[in-house]
Design a protein around this nucleic acid. Sequence first.
DNA 1: GTAGTAATGTTATATTATAACTTGTAATAT
DNA 2: ATATTACAAGTTATAATATAACATTACTAC
Lengths: 169, 169
Amino acid sequence: MASKNREMPDPAFRPHDHSRCRRKVLAAASRHARDQGLRLTPVRRRVLEILLENHRAMGAYEVLERLAREGWGAQPPIAYRALDFLARHGFVHKVRRLNAYVACTRSTHSDPPLLLICRACGRVGEAEGAGISREIGAIAGARGFSVERLGVEALGLCPACAADGGAGA
Amino acid sequence: MASKNREMPDPAFRPHDHSRCRRKVLAAASRHARDQGLRLTPVRRRVLEILLENHRAMGAYEVLERLAREGWGAQPPIAYRALDFLARHGFVHKVRRLNAYVACTRSTHSDPPLLLICRACGRVGEAEGAGISREIGAIAGARGFSVERLGVEALGLCPACAADGGAGA
DNA sequence: GTAGTAATGTTATATTATAACTTGTAATAT
DNA sequence: ATATTACAAGTTATAATATAACATTACTAC
Ligand SMILES: [Zn+2]
Ligand SMILES: [Zn+2]
Ligand SMILES: [Zn+2]
Ligand SMILES: [Zn+2]
């Protein structure tokens, strides 16, 4: 577990074979969808692919523009519905600080992630938030509050941008 | 510290003398502003007062409507600027999940709070997030990511609404 | 194949937020 | 006291984000 963190660090912030990274995530998503009886339709899959082109978050209208150029519907609901579906089922995360969406790169689409947002290069990484979730649940529980959904977003500098002095990537 | 949690539970979710609650927070804010050389001007103070009327979050336009009715400017920047000022200095918190703002009721306006958002009654409580912040900082740090700003928001049911079966307050 | 259901396409509009510029106000310097 | 400056408030306009409501198409079950 602790060792897993060392062996599989978040790819977002380090050079890696991203074609492979992307294919793996996409394959896992397909599998997950099939197993869960979720309909990963062409638009939905295409939106996921678009988000997987890099580790940045994209706004709904940015996604929409891409879809429109590729011949899909050009109206907001097209993008929002696909993104909502993907987010509901954990294929993507909504980054509330950015009003944008990022593809989930973790193996499990279950518990809420800790999102790491680089303010310089815009890349978004994610860390397992299981331990944090438990702790937050406990703090809330001590106040009689039952947590149903949790969002944890950290804004800061990724390793590469920190090395640059925070000026940007 | 743990005892403080028992003695000073978040007021948002329990019956309390809210006039007193509000006055205390407002007085503390005035003091803080004076000490820090911050200009808590009439509009800014009024916005804080409005948010302090209850423990719910208000949207910028909701606040603006109130200001307008009271003779202040009726344009969005009036509200947004006051809210931005108050948020920058920790007098209020932006609740990103709701695109809304809630008055800070804690004694210190420094570290980031854990926001507890009741989906039934809309009230927003806050818990000290210092421990969580440290832990998140550590997890991020292990990935070379340096956290500058942190947002933690939990959506769920407050004690009162949980007793109601989650139907609403 | 028909009926029912879910997804997509389209139109219109609601909601949230900011840019850019003007006017007023209060502290500072001369 | 008056000029200078900096910051805040007011105004106009528009940008960016998101959803409601309804028409059409595609898939599923029978
Ligand atoms: Zn990758
Ligand atoms: Zn970066
Ligand atoms: Zn109160
Ligand atoms: Zn409640």
